[in-house]
Each structure stands twice: as C-alpha cells, then as structure tokens.
C-alpha cells in the first residue's frame, strides 16, 4: 500500500508538529507562543499513540477480567491472527505508549502553567506581552545605570 496511507497517522502528527512550531516562532505574543508550544507538545502524543495501535486490538484495561465486548471483537478477526498476536484470545493495543503519553500530557500542563505565570509577571513588569515591545524596554534597561551613588 501507499506510504501516505499506511503511515498516515505519523504524517498527520508531523503536520501538527509543524503547525505548533510555526505558531511558536511566528508570533511575538507570549500567550500565543505558549499555545503553539502546547500544540507542539501534544503532537508527540499522536505519534506515540499511533505507534502502539494494533489493528483489531482493543484497550488493555480489562485484561483477564472477562470482557464480552473484547471477545466479540476478537471473534470477528482471523483466528490465526488472534492466536499469533493475541493474549488469552483477545488482541490488545500496546499499553506502554499510553503510559508514556500520560506522563507527557501532565508535563505539558505543568509547563503551560509555569510559562503563563511568568507571562503574567512580564505583563506586570513591562506592561505588555509582545516580545518586540519587551525587547525595546529591555534595551533601555541594559543601558541604564548600574552601581548608583
């Protein structure tokens, strides 16, 4: 099959990464930058989760506890496929990327809140959240007197 189809998920993740990076670097507004950063971070989730998907698989949240839905799904699949790739007669998607992305999402919200709190302090100290205007003020600061009398 065509790479654009078999690797569609990864390509979509790449496009979202590019959008996130573009938003991050093309704006001077600090809040919008944080939004771009958040978009960039979440696009890695798309990548990792796509890696762990197994066709015909189901969520590994009720393993060995008898789950009729999971068995019904497995019954639709080729028995040889279930035999080879399933566990106990049911095919599951890979749980490891899910765990990693849970971590990444939490890290993302932590970064977002710290970044925004710094942006709020910048607004209080400089009166603006536009990078260009902040730099102009900072240049004045740099030229200012240091060890005063």
């Amino acid at each position: 099959m065509n790479v654009a189809v078999t690797h569609f998920n990864y390509l979509a993740a790449v496009v979202l990464m590019m959008i996130g990076l573009y938003v991050l670097f093309s704006t001077g507004n600090l809040i919008k930058r944080m939004i771009g950063l958040a978009l960039f971070q979440t696009s890695t989730a798309l990548f990792y989760i796509s890696l762990g998907k197994v066709s015909g698989g189901t969520a590994a949240i009720r393993i060995y506890a008898d789950s009729p839905e999971a068995r019904a799904l497995a019954a639709q699949l080729d028995p040889a496929y279930v035999q080879q790739f399933g566990v106990g007669g049911v095919v599951y998607s890979n749980p490891l990327p899910h765990v990693l992305i849970l971590t990444a999402i939490v890290v993302g919200v932590a970064t977002l809140s710290v970044g925004l709190s710094i942006a709020v302090r910048i607004r209080e100290a400089y009166g603006t959240v536009e990078a260009g205007e902040i730099e102009a003020v900072a240049r004045v600061d740099a030229a200012g007197a240091g060890r005063g009398p």
Partner: peptide, 13 residues
C-alpha cells in the same frame, strides 16, 4: 522575566 520565559520555550522545545 523575559529571560526565564525564553529559557522555558527553548527548554521545552
């Protein structure tokens, strides 16, 4: 403050 913000952006990227 702006230095810390850009540290955060670079560091997270």
């Amino acid at each position: 403050l702006p230095a810390a913000f850009s540290y955060l952006i670079f560091g997270t990227v």
